[in-house]
């Protein structure tokens, strides 16, 4: 009798666990299919349109589009910028970011165009990053510096996903989108969602250590590119 009861009890437990598991699996699939489609890309007007910041998905509305499984979220600033932004009233450190965004510095993807370097110099901002990058610019084309460059780029910005790009004001995000488009990405799937400095939503994470000017970057989901392990392209 006891064995029989144990057997029945085990069957019941198994059925409950199995049932819950199937429910959760179905609910997840159902949620995905219920996920609202993203609004089509529409460029903002005015100055913000120059950066190709999206009119519908931007700093004001991004909180409505976080945690989507069909999107990758990339913040393309450096953790600590090498440029003297403080000369223009800015700061070098990534003092905050939007939850869900992962940092992939644009500066490590490709070199800055000379016109941009010159313009920043005229604004008293010098020291833009000039170190190793995955690609270089030659006659307006992006040339890989390493054999692994394209593979890394495709890993960081998967072509089968929608890509949300953010930076400080929208500029680097715009550069990144242009670069990806030039290298074969479908730009209709890449949204420039603007700059963290215009963000006032509920998902801001500060990296500042209380009471000091220092930052704790351990909070930041960061993609490191170890150039020392890469093979130089011919």
């Amino acid at each position: 009798m006891k064995k029989y009861l144990k057997f029945v009890f085990a069957i019941l437990i198994g059925a409950v666990i199995g049932g819950v598991g199937i429910y959760l699996l179905c609910e997840n699939k159902l949620n995905n299919s219920r996920m609202k489609p993203l609004p089509a890309q529409e460029k903002s007007e005015g100055l913000r349109g120059i950066y190709d910041i999206d009119k519908n998905i931007n700093e004001k509305t991004i909180d409505n589009y976080l945690e989507r499984p069909d999107v990758v979220y990339r913040d393309v600033r450096m953790l600590e910028d090498t440029a003297t932004w403080e000369n223009k009233g800015g700061e070098r450190n990534l003092t905050g970011f939007v939850k869900g965004f992962e940092v992939v510095p644009y500066a490590y993807l490709t070199e800055f165009p000379q016109e941009y370097i010159d313009q920043k110099k005229s604004e008293n901002v010098t020291g833009l990053y000039k170190g190793k990058t995955l690609f270089r610019l030659e006659d307006g084309k992006y040339i890989p510096n390493y054999k692994e460059s394209m593979e890394i780029l495709e890993y960081l910005f998967p072509k089968d996903k929608i890509i949300f790009l953010m930076c400080g004001a929208g500029g680097y995000a715009n550069f990144t989108k242009q670069m990806l488009g030039s290298l074969g990405w479908d730009t209709s799937k890449i949204y420039n969602v603007g700059g963290y400095w215009n963000y006032n939503g509920n998902n801001s994470i500060s990296t500042k250590i209380n009471g000091s000017d220092k930052c704790d970057f351990s909070k930041v989901p960061y993609h490191n590119i170890d150039f020392s392990r890469l093979t130089k392209a011919n």
């Binding site: 120059i50 800015g90 313009q119 920043k120 604004e123 004001a169 700059g195 400095w197």
Partner: peptide
């Protein structure tokens, strides 16, 4: 009110 990271053909300042 300015955003230091803005980049336009002519800096608005």
């Amino acid at each position: 009110a300015y955003n230091s990271f803005c980049t336009f053909q002519i800096p608005c300042e």
